[in-house]
Write a protein that binds this DNA or RNA. Sequence first.
DNA 1: TATGTTATAAATTATATAAATTATAATTTA
DNA 2: TAAATTATAATTTATATAATTTATAACATA
Lengths: 208, 208
Amino acid sequence: MCGDYTMPKTGLTSEKIKEKALQIAEEKIRYYGFEKFRLTDIAKELKISQAALYNHFPDKAALLDAISERWLVQMDNTLELITKQELPPRELIVKWFLKYHELKKEKVLKDPELYKSFNMAAELLKPFIIQHLDSLNQQLLMLVQKAIATGEIRAESPEYLVRLLFEATVSFHHPRMVLDHKDEYREGLLRKLVEVMLEGLHDTERNQ
Amino acid sequence: MCGDYTMPKTGLTSEKIKEKALQIAEEKIRYYGFEKFRLTDIAKELKISQAALYNHFPDKAALLDAISERWLVQMDNTLELITKQELPPRELIVKWFLKYHELKKEKVLKDPELYKSFNMAAELLKPFIIQHLDSLNQQLLMLVQKAIATGEIRAESPEYLVRLLFEATVSFHHPRMVLDHKDEYREGLLRKLVEVMLEGLHDTERNQ
DNA sequence: TATGTTATAAATTATATAAATTATAATTTA
DNA sequence: TAAATTATAATTTATATAATTTATAACATA
């Protein structure tokens, strides 16, 4: 169906066509809304027929999802950079949550229609959403394990603690919650919240 | 329009009619869904004309809201009882949040259609929703002030701390979040979360 | 005079049909 | 042979109209 190195009729590889299709789709979604954009418009701008899009995407939903997924992967990578910084793990955890919050809020403010489409995918718990959540879980687990190793926090189960931290900060990263609070400044509150949690985990004897 | 003591044609006071209307409306909403129930059905069962309902409710939305409000007031009262128990404030705060979570979860499981209508009202931040939130804020503030008074926690601003506790527990009481997690057992997680928060607030020097 | 009635206006929802869009099939081409 | 085309089937969305429901008005009554 796609993906080899022979020169196709458009003069572009399937990968390039896909990239261009996503770029054009983003523009159309921003203009018409994610529930109103048309494949015909995208095909027209790509100078291919509407049916030819199906050589690159299984269906319209896959194209829409690819846009959100691309953003999520980029976000995952940005956050991963933070996990690798040379700072005390507790500071890193705070910094990591603040950045996570910032990236979501920035998206909802700068790209509201694309955010809405991501939000819909999140509500449906589509596979690429689960993947993203797994990736974040992994990252925070690393940080928590570091913090335990340095003795900055105590916990019997790092996994349970990761769960606890995610639940406690839902208001600041859950797609719907970020949307609801998009115009509020809550960074100070989030910092304080995570700091209090970590403080509470500092000298507790037993966790879970 | 209503509310004096002359005997009306139905033989019932306006208050009694309202009560019965709400009771019947609840049944109709459970059966047809909150977006599908009809005033005509309620009037028929009350043995009055559909137009007569307007002597008791300004419009259909007011009737719907009255149902949610009645439940919220009952919940506020139940929670207020907890705030008055003779227990260490920190325990009370944990108990209070657990009951709040339990009441919401119980409603979504036992009365899903009425819960949906409450959820819609919450998303629109209708006045009675604000009232309910104010009431809960007040209650938690009392508990936090007690905890500060007994030295169980330290904080410069009790109001800020109340905000912090509500934000940290959003996942367990926000209407939409409770709906999303209705089939999960998370009581242990909530208890732990509040305990860690309170522990973190125990020996911090400065809060806010 | 609060609460009720019937009549009816206004608004909403349901339904049928036309139009447009998405998805597939059969075929062509670099 | 991957990636295109055109043709067309399937599905979705838009639109107009009928039916229903909600809300108001004018009036009646205990």
